[in-house]
């Protein structure tokens, strides 16, 4: 084996480590960069669930109609009156059934034990011990925002 051949062999070996290191570094940077870009990509239009949160559009609910939405792991009931939208927890304060809106009587009714609440969430009759918790609502450009 000549000296020249040995030399070549060595260069190729050194190159091998060099290439692995260079490729590895490139892969590392790419591996750090792409998840970071993905992270920065807006996931939702809304951003973190804080402050006022958009839950529905006014057009979704007819006047004197209602809609149930889920916010922060719990159900809310939205009720639209001619001049505004109200939001209450949809969880009955009695045993935790989900309440419904009775548009003919204009009352919130719990189907389980006939608990009745008025348009301010107060108990009219039946077993519920407390009023339904209510939430602040704002309507901007036809979008309903609820503050948790």
């Amino acid at each position: 084996m000549s000296a020249g051949e040995r030399q070549e062999d060595k260069i190729s070996r050194r190159d091998f480590f060099g290439w692995v290191i260079k490729g590895g570094l490139l892969a590392t940077f790419a591996g750090m960069l792409f998840p970071a870009l993905e992270y920065l990509l807006p996931v939702t239009r809304r951003g973190p669930a804080v402050g006022m949160k958009e839950v529905a559009r006014v057009d979704d609910i007819p006047v004197w109609g209602s809609k149930k939405v889920v916010l922060g792991g719990s159900a809310l009931i939205l009720i639209r009156t001619p001049d505004k939208v109200k939001a209450f927890s949809a969880v009955c304060t009695h045993l935790g059934c989900l309440v419904d809106w009775e548009d003919k009587k204009r009352e919130i009714i719990c189907p389980c034990h006939a608990g009745l609440f008025d348009l301010d969430g107060r108990v009219i009759s039946g077993p519920p011990p407390r009023a339904l918790p209510s939430y602040a609502v704002r309507v901007v450009d036809g979008n309903i925002f609820v503050e948790l």
């Binding site: 889920v70 719990s74 159900a75 059934c97 189907p111 389980c112």
Partner: peptide, 21 residues
């Protein structure tokens, strides 16, 4: 984080409670 599941659980509970009457 189980927020979505808690919401579903709430619906199931509602059904369960309404079974009684």
């Amino acid at each position: 984080f189980v927020e979505d599941e808690s919401a579903l659980l709430e619906v199931a509970k509602s059904d369960l409670v309404s079974m009684a009457p």
